[in-house]
Design a protein around this nucleic acid. Structure first.
Lengths: 188, 188
DNA sequence: TCCCTTCACTACGATACCGTAGCGTAGCGA
DNA sequence: TCGCTACGCTACGGTATCGTAGTGAAGGGA
Protein backbone atom coordinates (compact mmCIF):
# COMPACT_ATOMS: atom_id res chain seq x y z
CA UNK A 1 0.00 0.00 0.00
CA UNK A 2 3.03 2.31 -0.31
CA UNK A 3 2.98 4.99 -2.96
CA UNK A 4 4.15 4.30 -6.46
CA UNK A 5 7.53 6.00 -6.92
CA UNK A 6 6.28 7.36 -10.22
CA UNK A 7 3.55 9.20 -8.39
CA UNK A 8 5.79 10.81 -5.81
CA UNK A 9 8.31 11.72 -8.48
CA UNK A 10 5.70 13.45 -10.59
CA UNK A 11 4.20 15.26 -7.63
CA UNK A 12 7.59 16.44 -6.44
CA UNK A 13 8.57 17.78 -9.84
CA UNK A 14 5.27 19.53 -10.27
CA UNK A 15 5.38 21.19 -6.85
CA UNK A 16 8.99 22.21 -7.32
CA UNK A 17 8.45 23.86 -10.67
CA UNK A 18 5.20 25.43 -9.53
CA UNK A 19 6.98 27.13 -6.65
CA UNK A 20 9.60 28.47 -9.02
CA UNK A 21 6.99 29.83 -11.37
CA UNK A 22 4.99 31.33 -8.51
CA UNK A 23 8.05 33.15 -7.28
CA UNK A 24 8.88 34.62 -10.66
CA UNK A 25 5.50 35.10 -12.33
CA UNK A 26 3.08 35.22 -9.42
CA UNK A 27 -0.15 33.36 -8.93
CA UNK A 28 -1.98 34.86 -11.89
CA UNK A 29 0.98 34.39 -14.22
CA UNK A 30 1.48 30.72 -13.48
CA UNK A 31 -0.28 28.49 -15.99
CA UNK A 32 -0.72 24.74 -15.99
CA UNK A 33 0.82 24.57 -19.44
CA UNK A 34 3.95 26.31 -18.24
CA UNK A 35 4.20 23.97 -15.25
CA UNK A 36 3.95 21.00 -17.60
CA UNK A 37 6.54 22.40 -19.97
CA UNK A 38 9.11 23.34 -17.33
CA UNK A 39 8.70 20.19 -15.25
CA UNK A 40 8.65 17.69 -18.08
CA UNK A 41 5.48 16.26 -16.58
CA UNK A 42 2.58 16.03 -19.00
CA UNK A 43 -0.35 18.33 -18.43
CA UNK A 44 -2.67 15.35 -18.31
CA UNK A 45 -0.62 13.93 -15.48
CA UNK A 46 -0.96 17.15 -13.54
CA UNK A 47 -4.71 16.89 -13.82
CA UNK A 48 -4.54 13.28 -12.71
CA UNK A 49 -3.20 14.52 -9.35
CA UNK A 50 -5.15 17.72 -8.88
CA UNK A 51 -8.47 18.51 -10.44
CA UNK A 52 -7.90 22.21 -10.86
CA UNK A 53 -5.17 24.77 -11.39
CA UNK A 54 -6.00 26.39 -8.08
CA UNK A 55 -5.50 23.14 -6.23
CA UNK A 56 -2.06 22.66 -7.73
CA UNK A 57 -0.99 26.12 -6.70
CA UNK A 58 -2.45 25.80 -3.21
CA UNK A 59 -0.72 22.47 -2.76
CA UNK A 60 2.57 24.02 -3.80
CA UNK A 61 2.22 27.00 -1.49
CA UNK A 62 1.25 24.71 1.35
CA UNK A 63 4.65 23.03 1.24
CA UNK A 64 6.28 26.37 2.04
CA UNK A 65 4.92 26.67 5.54
CA UNK A 66 7.85 26.39 7.91
CA UNK A 67 7.28 26.67 11.59
CA UNK A 68 9.83 29.08 13.03
CA UNK A 69 12.10 27.71 15.69
CA UNK A 70 10.54 28.87 18.93
CA UNK A 71 12.72 28.03 21.86
CA UNK A 72 12.00 29.32 25.34
CA UNK A 73 15.33 31.00 25.99
CA UNK A 74 14.43 32.26 29.41
CA UNK A 75 14.13 35.96 28.67
CA UNK A 76 11.79 38.00 26.55
CA UNK A 77 14.67 39.77 24.87
CA UNK A 78 16.36 36.55 23.85
CA UNK A 79 13.13 35.03 22.58
CA UNK A 80 12.23 38.06 20.52
CA UNK A 81 15.70 38.44 19.09
CA UNK A 82 15.57 34.86 17.93
CA UNK A 83 12.06 35.11 16.51
CA UNK A 84 12.27 38.48 14.79
CA UNK A 85 15.78 37.74 13.59
CA UNK A 86 14.46 34.52 12.13
CA UNK A 87 11.63 36.39 10.50
CA UNK A 88 14.14 38.67 8.82
CA UNK A 89 16.10 35.75 7.49
CA UNK A 90 12.96 34.06 6.25
CA UNK A 91 11.88 37.26 4.52
CA UNK A 92 15.27 37.53 2.89
CA UNK A 93 15.76 33.96 1.76
CA UNK A 94 12.72 31.75 1.99
CA UNK A 95 10.44 30.77 -0.84
CA UNK A 96 7.47 31.93 1.09
CA UNK A 97 8.80 35.49 1.00
CA UNK A 98 9.18 35.39 -2.76
CA UNK A 99 5.56 34.56 -3.32
CA UNK A 100 4.10 36.46 -0.40
CA UNK A 101 2.96 39.53 -2.34
CA UNK A 102 1.25 37.36 -4.88
CA UNK A 103 -0.37 35.30 -2.15
CA UNK A 104 -1.54 38.46 -0.42
CA UNK A 105 -3.15 39.65 -3.60
CA UNK A 106 -4.79 36.31 -4.32
CA UNK A 107 -6.06 36.09 -0.76
CA UNK A 108 -8.06 39.23 -1.31
CA UNK A 109 -10.23 37.60 -3.92
CA UNK A 110 -10.16 33.89 -3.18
CA UNK A 111 -11.16 32.46 0.20
CA UNK A 112 -8.98 29.38 -0.30
CA UNK A 113 -5.90 31.51 -0.72
CA UNK A 114 -7.03 33.66 2.17
CA UNK A 115 -7.16 30.59 4.35
CA UNK A 116 -3.64 29.53 3.39
CA UNK A 117 -2.30 33.01 4.05
CA UNK A 118 -4.10 33.04 7.36
CA UNK A 119 -2.38 29.81 8.29
CA UNK A 120 0.98 31.25 7.30
CA UNK A 121 0.45 34.36 9.37
CA UNK A 122 -0.72 32.38 12.38
CA UNK A 123 2.28 30.07 12.19
CA UNK A 124 4.56 33.07 12.26
CA UNK A 125 2.73 35.08 14.89
CA UNK A 126 1.88 32.39 17.35
CA UNK A 127 5.39 31.86 18.77
CA UNK A 128 5.83 35.62 19.12
CA UNK A 129 2.56 35.85 21.01
CA UNK A 130 3.57 33.05 23.33
CA UNK A 131 6.93 34.66 24.01
CA UNK A 132 5.16 37.91 24.84
CA UNK A 133 2.81 36.17 27.23
CA UNK A 134 5.73 34.54 28.97
CA UNK A 135 7.29 38.00 29.20
CA UNK A 136 4.17 39.37 30.83
CA UNK A 137 4.09 36.52 33.32
CA UNK A 138 7.73 37.08 34.20
CA UNK A 139 7.05 40.77 34.72
CA UNK A 140 9.29 41.80 31.84
CA UNK A 141 6.32 43.58 30.35
CA UNK A 142 3.55 45.54 32.11
CA UNK A 143 0.57 43.35 32.96
CA UNK A 144 -1.79 45.37 30.76
CA UNK A 145 0.40 45.06 27.66
CA UNK A 146 -1.49 44.43 24.42
CA UNK A 147 0.35 41.59 22.67
CA UNK A 148 -1.29 42.42 19.36
CA UNK A 149 0.14 45.90 19.36
CA UNK A 150 3.59 44.52 20.03
CA UNK A 151 3.28 42.04 17.22
CA UNK A 152 2.25 44.85 14.91
CA UNK A 153 5.29 46.89 15.85
CA UNK A 154 7.82 44.08 15.68
CA UNK A 155 6.64 42.23 12.61
CA UNK A 156 5.33 45.37 10.98
CA UNK A 157 8.65 47.14 10.85
CA UNK A 158 10.31 44.16 9.26
CA UNK A 159 7.58 43.50 6.71
CA UNK A 160 7.26 47.16 5.86
CA UNK A 161 10.92 47.56 5.19
CA UNK A 162 11.03 44.49 3.00
CA UNK A 163 7.73 44.61 1.11
CA UNK A 164 6.73 48.24 1.02
CA UNK A 165 10.08 49.99 1.00
CA UNK A 166 11.71 47.21 -0.98
CA UNK A 167 14.86 47.15 1.10
CA UNK A 168 16.59 44.11 2.48
CA UNK A 169 16.39 42.93 6.05
CA UNK A 170 18.81 40.82 8.02
CA UNK A 171 19.09 39.43 11.50
CA UNK A 172 20.92 42.50 12.76
CA UNK A 173 18.12 44.74 11.64
CA UNK A 174 15.56 42.56 13.38
CA UNK A 175 17.50 42.66 16.61
CA UNK A 176 17.77 46.43 16.41
CA UNK A 177 14.00 46.63 16.07
CA UNK A 178 13.54 44.35 19.06
CA UNK A 179 15.75 46.53 21.24
CA UNK A 180 13.93 49.65 20.16
CA UNK A 181 10.48 48.25 20.73
CA UNK A 182 11.37 46.79 24.12
CA UNK A 183 12.41 50.25 25.18
CA UNK A 184 8.91 51.50 24.38
CA UNK A 185 7.56 49.09 26.96
CA UNK A 186 10.00 49.96 29.67
CA UNK A 187 12.18 46.87 29.31
CA UNK A 188 15.84 47.66 29.84
CA UNK B 1 -6.38 74.33 -28.02
CA UNK B 2 -8.61 73.19 -25.17
CA UNK B 3 -9.55 69.54 -24.95
CA UNK B 4 -12.59 68.21 -26.70
CA UNK B 5 -15.23 67.50 -24.04
CA UNK B 6 -15.84 64.12 -25.65
CA UNK B 7 -12.23 63.22 -25.00
CA UNK B 8 -12.23 64.15 -21.35
CA UNK B 9 -15.54 62.43 -20.84
CA UNK B 10 -14.25 59.19 -22.34
CA UNK B 11 -11.02 59.36 -20.39
CA UNK B 12 -12.81 60.03 -17.13
CA UNK B 13 -15.20 57.14 -17.59
CA UNK B 14 -12.39 54.77 -18.50
CA UNK B 15 -10.24 55.73 -15.53
CA UNK B 16 -13.16 55.55 -13.16
CA UNK B 17 -14.23 52.08 -14.21
CA UNK B 18 -10.65 50.87 -14.39
CA UNK B 19 -10.10 51.85 -10.76
CA UNK B 20 -13.22 49.99 -9.74
CA UNK B 21 -12.12 46.88 -11.57
CA UNK B 22 -8.60 47.11 -10.18
CA UNK B 23 -9.97 47.26 -6.67
CA UNK B 24 -12.17 44.22 -7.11
CA UNK B 25 -10.27 42.04 -9.56
CA UNK B 26 -6.70 43.22 -9.23
CA UNK B 27 -4.22 44.16 -11.93
CA UNK B 28 -4.09 40.75 -13.58
CA UNK B 29 -7.83 40.31 -13.53
CA UNK B 30 -8.65 43.60 -15.17
CA UNK B 31 -9.15 43.27 -18.92
CA UNK B 32 -9.62 45.92 -21.54
CA UNK B 33 -12.80 44.24 -22.68
CA UNK B 34 -14.28 44.43 -19.20
CA UNK B 35 -13.33 48.10 -18.94
CA UNK B 36 -15.10 48.74 -22.23
CA UNK B 37 -18.17 46.84 -21.22
CA UNK B 38 -18.56 48.42 -17.79
CA UNK B 39 -17.77 51.96 -18.91
CA UNK B 40 -19.86 52.02 -22.04
CA UNK B 41 -16.80 53.28 -23.89
CA UNK B 42 -15.86 51.23 -26.92
CA UNK B 43 -12.68 49.21 -26.75
CA UNK B 44 -11.39 50.94 -29.84
CA UNK B 45 -11.77 54.26 -28.09
CA UNK B 46 -9.71 53.02 -25.17
CA UNK B 47 -6.92 52.14 -27.55
CA UNK B 48 -7.19 55.59 -29.11
CA UNK B 49 -6.16 57.09 -25.79
CA UNK B 50 -3.64 54.55 -24.59
CA UNK B 51 -1.68 52.20 -26.76
CA UNK B 52 -1.58 49.32 -24.32
CA UNK B 53 -3.49 47.75 -21.49
CA UNK B 54 -0.63 48.45 -19.11
CA UNK B 55 -0.72 52.15 -19.91
CA UNK B 56 -4.42 52.36 -19.14
CA UNK B 57 -3.94 50.72 -15.78
CA UNK B 58 -0.92 52.81 -14.90
CA UNK B 59 -2.80 55.98 -15.84
CA UNK B 60 -5.66 54.93 -13.61
CA UNK B 61 -3.45 54.12 -10.66
CA UNK B 62 -1.61 57.38 -11.11
CA UNK B 63 -4.77 59.32 -10.38
CA UNK B 64 -4.90 57.75 -6.92
CA UNK B 65 -1.84 59.45 -5.58
CA UNK B 66 -2.97 61.82 -2.91
CA UNK B 67 -0.42 63.86 -1.06
CA UNK B 68 -1.15 63.59 2.65
CA UNK B 69 -1.85 66.80 4.47
CA UNK B 70 1.47 67.65 6.10
CA UNK B 71 1.12 70.64 8.35
CA UNK B 72 3.90 71.76 10.64
CA UNK B 73 1.95 71.69 13.88
CA UNK B 74 4.84 72.73 16.05
CA UNK B 75 5.50 69.48 17.86
CA UNK B 76 6.68 66.09 16.74
CA UNK B 77 3.86 64.37 18.54
CA UNK B 78 1.19 66.47 16.85
CA UNK B 79 2.76 66.04 13.43
CA UNK B 80 3.03 62.27 13.75
CA UNK B 81 -0.44 61.89 15.13
CA UNK B 82 -1.79 63.75 12.13
CA UNK B 83 0.32 61.85 9.61
CA UNK B 84 -0.05 58.31 10.94
CA UNK B 85 -3.68 58.91 11.76
CA UNK B 86 -4.15 60.05 8.19
CA UNK B 87 -2.35 56.98 6.94
CA UNK B 88 -4.77 54.80 8.86
CA UNK B 89 -7.74 56.55 7.36
CA UNK B 90 -6.26 56.29 3.89
CA UNK B 91 -5.62 52.59 4.39
CA UNK B 92 -9.17 52.12 5.53
CA UNK B 93 -11.00 54.14 2.92
CA UNK B 94 -8.92 55.23 -0.02
CA UNK B 95 -8.86 53.65 -3.42
CA UNK B 96 -5.14 53.33 -3.26
CA UNK B 97 -5.46 50.96 -0.31
CA UNK B 98 -7.87 48.72 -2.19
CA UNK B 99 -5.45 48.16 -5.02
CA UNK B 100 -2.24 48.27 -3.02
CA UNK B 101 -1.71 44.48 -2.73
CA UNK B 102 -2.22 44.10 -6.43
CA UNK B 103 0.12 46.98 -7.14
CA UNK B 104 2.72 45.50 -4.84
CA UNK B 105 2.55 42.22 -6.69
CA UNK B 106 2.72 43.84 -10.11
CA UNK B 107 5.65 46.00 -9.01
CA UNK B 108 7.67 42.86 -8.40
CA UNK B 109 7.60 41.91 -12.05
CA UNK B 110 7.11 45.13 -13.98
CA UNK B 111 9.46 48.10 -13.61
CA UNK B 112 6.74 50.54 -14.64
CA UNK B 113 4.51 49.41 -11.82
CA UNK B 114 7.49 49.42 -9.50
CA UNK B 115 8.10 53.03 -10.36
CA UNK B 116 4.51 53.99 -9.62
CA UNK B 117 4.58 52.17 -6.31
CA UNK B 118 7.85 53.86 -5.48
CA UNK B 119 6.25 57.21 -6.11
CA UNK B 120 3.33 56.28 -3.87
CA UNK B 121 5.60 55.20 -1.06
CA UNK B 122 7.75 58.30 -1.34
CA UNK B 123 4.71 60.56 -1.29
CA UNK B 124 3.59 58.92 1.92
CA UNK B 125 6.92 58.71 3.72
CA UNK B 126 8.36 62.07 2.76
CA UNK B 127 6.19 64.16 5.10
CA UNK B 128 6.89 61.75 7.95
CA UNK B 129 10.61 62.04 7.33
CA UNK B 130 10.42 65.80 7.34
CA UNK B 131 8.45 65.81 10.58
CA UNK B 132 11.07 63.55 12.14
CA UNK B 133 13.89 65.83 11.03
CA UNK B 134 12.12 68.80 12.53
CA UNK B 135 11.76 66.76 15.71
CA UNK B 136 15.49 66.09 15.77
CA UNK B 137 16.27 69.76 15.24
CA UNK B 138 13.94 70.72 18.06
CA UNK B 139 15.60 68.20 20.34
CA UNK B 140 12.46 66.11 20.67
CA UNK B 141 14.46 63.16 19.38
CA UNK B 142 18.08 62.19 20.05
CA UNK B 143 20.44 63.67 17.49
CA UNK B 144 21.59 60.26 16.29
CA UNK B 145 18.06 59.00 15.61
CA UNK B 146 17.67 56.98 12.43
CA UNK B 147 14.58 58.37 10.68
CA UNK B 148 14.29 55.27 8.51
CA UNK B 149 13.93 53.02 11.53
CA UNK B 150 11.20 55.25 12.90
CA UNK B 151 9.35 55.22 9.61
CA UNK B 152 9.54 51.43 9.58
CA UNK B 153 8.07 51.21 13.06
CA UNK B 154 5.31 53.75 12.56
CA UNK B 155 4.16 52.89 9.08
CA UNK B 156 5.03 49.25 9.49
CA UNK B 157 2.68 48.61 12.37
CA UNK B 158 -0.20 50.17 10.49
CA UNK B 159 0.46 48.40 7.21
CA UNK B 160 1.08 45.10 8.91
CA UNK B 161 -2.17 45.22 10.82
CA UNK B 162 -4.14 46.10 7.72
CA UNK B 163 -2.48 44.05 4.97
CA UNK B 164 -0.91 41.07 6.69
CA UNK B 165 -3.23 40.55 9.64
CA UNK B 166 -6.25 41.72 7.68
CA UNK B 167 -7.67 43.80 10.50
CA UNK B 168 -8.98 47.30 10.23
CA UNK B 169 -7.12 50.41 11.32
CA UNK B 170 -8.49 53.76 12.36
CA UNK B 171 -7.12 57.07 13.51
CA UNK B 172 -7.22 56.05 17.14
CA UNK B 173 -5.05 53.03 16.45
CA UNK B 174 -2.53 55.18 14.59
CA UNK B 175 -2.30 57.60 17.47
CA UNK B 176 -1.77 54.76 19.91
CA UNK B 177 1.12 53.54 17.79
CA UNK B 178 2.62 57.02 17.70
CA UNK B 179 2.52 57.29 21.48
CA UNK B 180 4.10 53.90 21.89
CA UNK B 181 6.89 54.52 19.42
CA UNK B 182 7.68 57.95 20.80
CA UNK B 183 8.22 56.32 24.17
CA UNK B 184 10.87 54.10 22.62
CA UNK B 185 12.82 57.20 21.73
CA UNK B 186 12.50 58.85 25.10
CA UNK B 187 9.87 61.40 24.11
CA UNK B 188 7.37 62.01 26.89
C1' DT C 1 -24.49 75.81 -41.40
C1' DC C 2 -20.50 72.81 -42.32
C1' DC C 3 -16.36 70.44 -41.56
C1' DC C 4 -13.54 67.80 -38.63
C1' DT C 5 -12.91 65.06 -34.70
C1' DT C 6 -14.37 61.60 -31.78
C1' DC C 7 -17.08 57.98 -31.09
C1' DA C 8 -19.73 53.14 -31.11
C1' DC C 9 -20.14 48.99 -33.28
C1' DT C 10 -19.00 44.80 -35.51
C1' DA C 11 -15.79 41.88 -36.95
C1' DC C 12 -11.47 40.12 -37.07
C1' DG C 13 -6.62 37.39 -36.35
C1' DA C 14 -3.64 35.80 -33.06
C1' DT C 15 -2.50 33.90 -28.83
C1' DA C 16 -2.95 31.79 -24.39
C1' DC C 17 -5.18 29.17 -21.28
C1' DC C 18 -8.25 25.57 -19.03
C1' DG C 19 -9.63 21.07 -18.71
C1' DT C 20 -10.63 16.53 -21.31
C1' DA C 21 -10.18 12.36 -24.47
C1' DG C 22 -7.81 8.60 -26.57
C1' DC C 23 -3.84 5.88 -27.43
C1' DG C 24 0.34 3.64 -26.96
C1' DT C 25 4.39 2.97 -23.81
C1' DA C 26 7.15 2.22 -19.86
C1' DG C 27 7.82 1.23 -15.18
C1' DC C 28 6.29 -1.00 -10.86
C1' DG C 29 5.08 -4.90 -7.90
C1' DA C 30 3.72 -9.65 -7.33
C1' DT D 1 7.23 -13.05 -16.32
C1' DC D 2 2.89 -10.55 -16.38
C1' DG D 3 -0.78 -7.57 -15.35
C1' DC D 4 -1.84 -3.13 -13.71
C1' DT D 5 -1.00 1.54 -13.13
C1' DA D 6 0.97 5.82 -14.17
C1' DC D 7 2.76 8.22 -17.72
C1' DG D 8 3.75 11.02 -22.20
C1' DC D 9 1.91 12.60 -26.30
C1' DT D 10 -1.21 14.63 -29.51
C1' DA D 11 -5.26 16.62 -30.29
C1' DC D 12 -9.23 18.74 -29.05
C1' DG D 13 -13.41 22.27 -27.68
C1' DG D 14 -14.31 26.26 -25.43
C1' DT D 15 -13.32 30.61 -23.63
C1' DA D 16 -10.85 34.89 -22.68
C1' DT D 17 -7.87 38.24 -23.99
C1' DC D 18 -5.08 41.58 -26.73
C1' DG D 19 -4.83 44.73 -30.23
C1' DT D 20 -6.50 46.23 -35.12
C1' DA D 21 -9.54 47.45 -39.23
C1' DG D 22 -13.41 49.53 -41.35
C1' DT D 23 -17.75 51.94 -41.38
C1' DG D 24 -21.19 55.01 -40.34
C1' DA D 25 -23.14 58.16 -36.88
C1' DA D 26 -22.98 61.89 -33.61
C1' DG D 27 -21.10 65.72 -31.35
C1' DG D 28 -18.17 70.06 -31.17
C1' DG D 29 -16.21 74.40 -32.99
C1' DA D 30 -15.87 78.14 -36.52
Amino acid sequence: MSTDPRVSRSRARIIEVTLDLLATRGVAGTSVDSIAERSGVAKTTIYRHWSTKGEVILAAIDTCIDTPAAPDLGSLRADLRALIGGLCEALAHSRWAALLPSLLDAALRDPEFAEVHQRFAATRTEPVRRALERGIERGELPADTDPGELVDLLSGAVFYRRLLAGESVDRAYGERIVERVLRAYGSH
